[in-house]
């Protein structure tokens, strides 16, 4: 085997692993939300692929030492995607998969919205939209002071980006030249009351972020290779914080959820639907 072939084989293996992890995360999301019968399924499924790439490859973390000093951190600023984070954490072995089925039950460690004091592996408490990105900026500044070389990742919603605080955070991040801050926008074009374009349009999003001093990438948010390659490029970039716009589909991976369009923000999931959904996810060939 030539060097090139070896490299190619290795990268195919990585792609397959990441796709498999994304698949596992999606199945976990269905189990998690299905266990209580209703939840924010759409915005969980739209970030499954980026979570697979972060947890499967890029984040410097250790599931058996969740509080590891100088670890990379992820702030899910769109806190209602808690079940997606829990699904990734369970896949990585932070806790038992059976625990996913305690979502939102009285006394649970897995509340609908991310809570750093309740869930092992969750790096920030979110749920009141607009605040998480500022918290990530604080962490990125902290990492610069400590000089620990960590990366701080944040995921914001496109609807969430209507909050003024997002742009206050953006301005400071660029001013502080936080090149250790990598932010993703889940650009699924949907919020609760309608499409982003109907309610309060945030376009042109790429131009806004570059005007705010970010280095901006815009990619297919369901292409694990593209996400992987872009994060690698982002890590090499200096002097500017990074915005990776993930062009996504709300509800991605389950056709009846995708088909519900704006209605998939929060929707009921029956036991039969869960079975159907898992079948569909697992039927996706991994190439």
């Amino acid at each position: 085997m030539t060097m090139n072939e070896k490299k190619k084989n290795e990268s195919t293996r990585t792609t397959q692993q990441l796709k498999k992890l994304a698949q596992e995360i999606r199945v976990n999301i269905v189990d998690c939300i299905g266990s209580i019968g209703v939840g924010h399924i759409g915005g969980c499924l739209s970030i499954a692929d980026v979570l697979a790439v972060l947890y499967g490859k890029h984040m410097r973390i250790n599931p058996s030492d969740p509080q590891l000093d100088g670890r990379d951190r992820l702030v899910c600023s769109k806190g209602h995607a808690g079940p997606a984070i829990y699904s990734a954490l369970a896949a990585k072995g932070y806790f038992d998969k059976a625990e996913l089925k305690t979502l939102n039950k009285g006394g649970t460690k897995l509340p609908s919205h991310c809570d750093m004091n309740k869930t092992i592996g969750v790096d920030m408490t979110t749920g009141s939209l607009g605040q998480g990105l500022s918290c990530a900026v604080g962490m990125a500044i902290g990492s610069k002071i400590r000089n620990d070389g960590s990366y701080i990742y944040a995921i914001v919603g496109d609807g969430e980006s209507q909050e003024g605080q997002i742009w206050e955070a953006a301005m400071l991040a660029a001013h502080k030249k936080l090149d250790n801050l990598i932010v993703f926008t889940d650009y699924n074009h949907m919020q609760i009351d309608g499409t982003i374009e109907e309610i309060n349009d945030i376009a042109p999003l790429d131009k806004k972020w570059s005007a705010f001093g970010f280095r901006v990438f815009s990619i297919d948010g369901h292409d694990v290779d593209a996400i992987d390659a872009t994060i690698s490029r982002a890590k090499k970039s200096t002097a500017k914080p990074i915005m990776i716009i993930l062009n996504t589909i709300k509800g991605k991976g389950i056709s009846f959820v995708e088909g519900a369009k704006v209605g998939c923000h929060s929707m009921p999931l029956s036991a039969e639907q869960c079975e159907l959904a898992k079948k569909e996810i697992l039927a996706q060939a991994i190439i």
């Binding site: 939102n104 919205h113 408490t125 009141s128």
Partner: peptide, 11 residues
């Protein structure tokens, strides 16, 4: 108050 139910502590 508690009528926020499944939305939890933040809500």
């Amino acid at each position: 108050g508690i009528t926020a139910e499944l939305n939890g502590g933040t809500h």
